[in-house]
Design a protein around this nucleic acid. Structure first.
Lengths: 106, 106
DNA sequence: ACGTCTCATCAGCGCGTGCTGATAGAACGC
DNA sequence: GCGTTCTATCAGCACGCGCTGATGAGACGT
């Protein structure tokens, strides 16, 4: 409902991180590059389900997929994660100073 | 559908950050402590809506609310944000090394 | 060429969630 | 006491989203 002006954290990334299965995928891909079938096996999820989650992660710029024969290898892109990490750190840092300020009410 | 074992990022926090309005609330609270009526005015949202979002943020441990007369002042708690920031940074750091590794398929 | 394997997309379903209006309660001013 | 203000909670609704089975496309082995 709200249009963001200069967001400290990207909406697509934040939304992608909101799902437990997608976070698990990111953790797995943080260890090594994996193809879809690996993820299906590791997660115990449906192939369709994994594929859908990968699409969300790809659209968020968190994952890049590369076709290798009939397999599709996926790798994690650190950039967006680091940007969001920095955004959250900035938010936390600011808030420490904000504890002293209280806008008067009424 | 998935039970997390030792999550790098907390589910409540990640879920709370997924909504644009809640992120805007966090940004506003990062600048100064505000009461509910301030947030209603700044966001142009309904009082009920803001109140619901604040409840989610409180349950995630991101915001603490304090009653001051008939007003309720809300402040951002940096702790969980910093923890998630660190978790994302760790994930990104790991992934840089993972780019070299590719699990064989089949 | 044919079957198999991997993977993505599609249509559909059910539940979670964001939003709302109405209600209730607590604090302040008169 | 009484009305007003600020806030949280409660039902209810509508949309989004995660999950599924089925289908289709591309690559490999025989």
């Amino acid at each position: 409902m709200l249009i963001e002006r200069s967001p400290l954290v990207d909406h697509g990334v934040a939304r992608a991180l909101a799902d437990p299965t997608r976070r698990r995928i990111l953790e797995l891909l943080a260890g090594e590059q994996l193809c879809t079938c690996h993820l299906v096996e590791e997660l115990g999820a449906t192939q369709t389900n994994v594929s859908n989650h990968l699409r969300v992660l790809r659209e968020a710029g968190l994952v890049v997929s590369e076709q290798a024969g009939r397999y599709a290898y996926h790798r994690l892109v650190p950039d967006r994660l680091e940007r969001m990490s920095a955004g959250l750190a900035a938010l936390a840092s600011r808030s420490r100073l904000a504890l002293a300020v209280r806008r008067p009410c009424g």
